[in-house]
């Protein structure tokens, strides 16, 4: 599957789109369960949020922001490719998507300070 040579930006964009989607889909149930803790009271939710202050969890949150932005931009690219008239592979859109997600990740880091 990987040994093939023909790897081009469109392929990497598709793989990044799929893997980010995969991670986000698996994260969602956990996200929902944590918010659901509010049913047991504000203090329970608060303790979960304070637990998430650990560096490793914060790092995961940062990664999720980047992945969500990436999945959004690459998804918009697919919608453009499929529903607007185009010729060629529109590789500039991939670069744009990567840039936006890096930007979102950086903003998140800055705001943490």
């Amino acid at each position: 599957m990987i040994q093939r040579w023909r790897r081009h930006p469109g392929y990497w964009a598709a793989i990044a789109h799929r893997l980010s989607g995969l991670v986000l889909a698996l994260f969602l149930p956990a996200h929902f369960l944590v918010l659901g803790l509010a049913l047991e009271g504000e203090i329970v939710l608060e303790s979960a949020i304070r637990w998430a202050d650990q560096p490793l969890v914060k790092f995961s949150e940062w990664a999720l922001i980047v992945l969500l932005t990436l999945h959004l931009s690459l998804g918009l690219r697919i919608l453009i490719l499929e529903f607007l008239p185009w010729r060629g592979s529109r590789q500039a859109l991939i670069g744009f998507g990567a840039l936006v997600s890096i930007l979102a990740g950086s903003v998140f880091l800055l705001k943490l300070e």
Binding site: H8, G10, I78, E82, R87, G88
Partner: peptide, 26 residues
């Protein structure tokens, strides 16, 4: 089709099957 675009990259006569498939989807 997930619009990877490998067909467009490699078609020797410069066709764009992915664009045609997108047309079929529409």
């Amino acid at each position: 089709c997930h619009t990877h675009g490998s067909c467009v990259e490699d078609c020797p006569v410069g066709l764009n099957p992915a664009a045609g498939i997108a047309g079929l989807k529409r």
